[in-house]
Design a protein around this nucleic acid. Sequence first.
DNA 1: ATTAACTTGCACATTGGTGTGCAAGTTATT
DNA 2: AATAACTTGCACACCAATGTGCAAGTTAAT
Lengths: 209, 209
Amino acid sequence: MPTPTARSPRRDALDNRVALIEAARVVFARDPGASLDAIAVEAGLSRRAVYGHFASRDDLQRELVTMGAARIAAALEGIDHEDPVVRLALIAAGIWREVASMRVMALFAIRGNLQAHTVNALAPLRLKVFEAVREGIAAGSVRADIPAERLARLVEDAALAILAESNRSNLSAREGHTLVQLSVLGALGFGWREAEALISNTPELNGTD
Amino acid sequence: MPTPTARSPRRDALDNRVALIEAARVVFARDPGASLDAIAVEAGLSRRAVYGHFASRDDLQRELVTMGAARIAAALEGIDHEDPVVRLALIAAGIWREVASMRVMALFAIRGNLQAHTVNALAPLRLKVFEAVREGIAAGSVRADIPAERLARLVEDAALAILAESNRSNLSAREGHTLVQLSVLGALGFGWREAEALISNTPELNGTD
DNA sequence: ATTAACTTGCACATTGGTGTGCAAGTTATT
DNA sequence: AATAACTTGCACACCAATGTGCAAGTTAAT
């Protein structure tokens, strides 16, 4: 009687797992109520296979959010400019690199049973934004007619508007990069020429990447 | 054998019908997938009663959209300023008067089986916005760095951001009125001081209404 | 080549929501 | 006071989606 040999997991299985999360990101961005079948099809798998990777719908969504948060955290790694306005523009650009994840997170943060988890995962980002807004107001470089807390939320919305726009028309990476910064600067109170000037005069904001 | 006398419908029935639409507006704004039971409860009626007024879920939503469109059309009645920027600010303020309707319409315009109907109902408003944006760009009073079509959509988003904010914190009528204008002007490229100046120098934009 | 790992398809129980029929009750109108 | 209009509660059939079990197939690792 041979001992059943333990064997390492197959590569394609991991690929499929990733494909499922990716598919979920795409499909849920369009319709947060989409069925697991729709996601399986998008990933080129059967509905049954989903349950080989995730215990439940909730579980899949939870992983999606967790992974999204990680990607966003990574994209924001090391952003720390002394000028709070530049910092906000950098955050905006950083988020743009993770459009897909960000959109889904924003959706899940509003409704669904993972609200708490999602909101929690987004908290560090929100704190960063709020802090920068507060500093900016104190320094006089950001509009003073809207209290910091509210303005921070409106800045978020301004960024999300561009992410939504990227779903409607096709924004190139470059266009999105610029637009999301313009939008955020606009929310902060900058006129459009001011915003353009700031971007072109600040090397960090211009990086093709 | 007495002829069955035709009788006029009861007043409370009409009240209930209105209450249901109102409840639907509230509940659907929070969760577009909410059950008819949730709406009935919100309206203080039984689920069964809903079917006394609307043939189906779809039918209720259709009526909701139709009524919303009518309210918005009414709110925008007679807005026709020669300066396209002022016109846009007036439209923004007009929409603010119908926040609740507008939020639901915006939701239904994205997903759901009434997409077509909703998009259709919103078309006149969108056209008005687009025209004003186009004129504004031509006149040089609106930012020139974003094509009119896209900018028109971003202006919509800017207004919707304030409607969303009104759900998060409690905006007074007055605050909302001002904020939605500031937000739209910001999207059009105005700096915050410029925007404030324009609003306070233009009597039409100041009406406490 | 063997064998474990993975996918598939099908069947099945379960859940939550929709829409309808009907009998019994309540309430506005006449 | 009579009665039509409306609401309610319960029953029911129906549907779409979730989650599980299992046998048969396919595919990657050893």
